[in-house]
Design a protein around this nucleic acid. Structure first.
Lengths: 349, 349
DNA sequence: GGTAGCACTCGACTTCAAAGAGTGCTAAAG
DNA sequence: CTTTAGCACTCTTTGAAGTCGAGTGCTACC
């Protein structure tokens, strides 16, 4: 563990704050003027040299100022930064931005992502693994062809999932209607976590053993639900905000980054890991975690949203390493709380 | 109308072809060498001067070659260009790319968009106004709250539409189930174009007049369908391909263009107009149509896909003015045919 | 009408010098 | 022992000047 004197910390913080603001390497003179304690640039230079030796700062070239390294940022985030409190009016306007999009849950999640991107001026992201379809509401089997069945699954919160399954034997819509009726009755108000178990029980019951029709219905429901919970939705909004960051002025770089966004499955994997790992706010910097190689200069601030203690999904902000963390962190945190709350309401209705 | 001699046409074509290939202003020397007819650069210069006077060419500065203007491109597209035939193997691989994504119709449309973007190395786009939910398959009313009803509408092709409506009176799920049953029975296999009429007839029938329950069901179905057909889905894929075009090397420009993509409602309007206007392949160049202001340097190649004579939606490619039209046009055309065909099959199932 | 020749224009690239920001080191002061 | 002032040094940025080359327009000639 690294030992820093009080003054080291102050200087590091000042450098990072300034760097976050301007994006330019910052020199000793600037810090000397700006900082509260009155010390000369020369003194600051000594401190800087120390910090550089510790690997917290980096000098692009001999005659330039210093830039924080990933290690420096990490230290800053973990033990120096005090994140700003959100003002009441800020909270208010975030809340408004979310509540004016009540339509359905898909809209809500996309809206959240968009809101995050606008408030943080970076890309916003929301991941919603469907296994968290919190509780079962309705299932519907529709015949598309003699062996082709479309299954529509709806959660109480209003999320729709659509799958296809194949039947081994020909089947009529009338039969399927019976299936729907039966399964809906069976699962009424069963939380999704229990659904699979409930189905299994029923499959082993006498009724199913002796009635082929019911048995098939149960199997189908089982398969459909299996598919459903393996799926995830991801909403990435405001990517173009990233273009405003001067560090991405080079088209080459920009393209690499935007292309990474296009491969959603990678993004899903990334966020899924974050979701599993985290209990609260989490920050992944550039090369630190196993962010994609394309992302060296990027950073992710995320927080899970949850029902009670079970995490439902994760939301966050993606931007360059140089972001205003002290502002973004509380926003992400607050949004996660807010969304948790809203989903709770939606699900209770 | 502009009169061009044979030679004018050949020169114009040569310039445009070369410009499309290289992206650089093209000089008289180049044309002289490349063109079939053996004439000296000086002669070409004379022709060029004429073409410039007609507003078909433009000279960035005195000592540069010529670049086609929008007017020049238009003329080329309308009366000079011969679009290349697609080879059998190309057709084959396009077909494969589409057919390997059979899952559901949403996937099919998104896949089409992606395929277009990959084959043309530009952004691909597919617009699907829901009014073309070709024929009604299933409706489901679900209670979300005492006055809040979620309506799910499914077309035979498997497209799902979700809306909310509010009820004036409290309502139970049991009632809603009856509604669903009734409406589904009523509309079984009615093409969507007839649905509204069918509903109206029924509303005026005796049965509805005397049964409040039926009457409310009809009203709800009516409203839900109204919402549904006003909605559109749009799929834009491969935007990052645009970054490869050297003409967008400036970040400023790039941002403007990508930002325009983010406002989907604008894109919908744009394509919707194209859809209404067109019967076949259609090309909108930069400022010509009422493309958005942000799009001066962009161009859209589109073609509607249809069932019989009614257009269902539109697909196309968006890229810079400088695109390889002779290749892209047949691809778009062929894809539209192919998709029309596939939807026909899906809907008959 | 077509072509060769030629002077001219203008952007792209290179070179060079000057300016400016910032450092590291040393020596003196607290 | 820590802090500071001073100074030489390094490296990037900026701008001016100069050269190069592509391409043109014009004129005279075939």
């Amino acid at each position: 563990m690294i030992e820093l004197t009080q003054r080291d910390q102050i200087v590091l913080e000042a450098i990072i704050t300034d760097y976050i603001e301007t994006g330019e390497p910052v020199g000793s003179r600037t810090i000397s003027k700006r900082s509260v304690m009155n010390v000369s640039p020369a003194t600051i230079r000594n401190v800087m040299a120390d910090l550089e030796e510790m690997g917290l700062l980096h000098q692009p070239h001999t005659s330039a100022g210093r830039v924080p390294t990933v290690k420096g940022l990490r230290l800053y985030l973990d033990s120096i930064m005090r994140s700003r409190q959100l003002g009441g009016s800020e909270k208010e306007s975030i809340r408004d931005a979310l509540l004016t999009r009540p339509q359905d849950i898909t809209e809500l999640l996309r809206g959240t992502s968009k809101m995050l991107s606008q408030y943080c001026r970076q890309a916003g992201v929301v991941l919603w693994p469907k296994q968290s379809i919190a509780s079962f509401k309705h299932i519907e089997f529709l015949r598309r062809g003699p062996f082709d069945i479309m299954v529509i699954l709806i959660s109480r919160a209003g999320l729709i999932h659509q799958t296809h399954i194949e039947s081994k034997e020909e089947i009529t819509q009338a039969e399927l209607d019976k299936y729907s009726l039966y399964i809906n009755e069976l699962l009424r108000n069963v939380p999704l976590s229990m659904v699979k178990q409930r189905l299994r029980e029923e499959m082993e019951s006498e009724k199913a053993l002796f009635d082929r029709l019911f048995s098939r219905a149960l199997q189908m429901a089982n398969r459909a639900i299996q598919y459903a919970i393996e799926d995830s939705e991801i909403y990435i909004e405001g990517q173009t905000n990233l273009l405003d960051n001067p560090e991405f002025a080079h088209v080459e770089q920009m393209r690499r980054i935007l292309q990474a966004f296009e491969d959603k499955s990678k993004m899903v994997r990334l966020l899924d890991e974050a979701l599993k790992a985290s209990t609260g706010i989490q920050i992944v910097l550039g090369t630190e975690g196993e962010l994609l190689q394309e992302w060296e200069e990027m950073s992710l601030v995320s927080a899970p949203f949850r029902r009670g203690d079970t995490p439902l999904g994760i939301l966050g902000v993606i931007g360059p390493l140089r972001m205003d963390y002290s502002r973004i962190i509380p926003i992400v945190e607050f949004t996660a709380q807010l969304l948790s709350h809203m989903l709770e309401i939606a699900d209770e209705a």
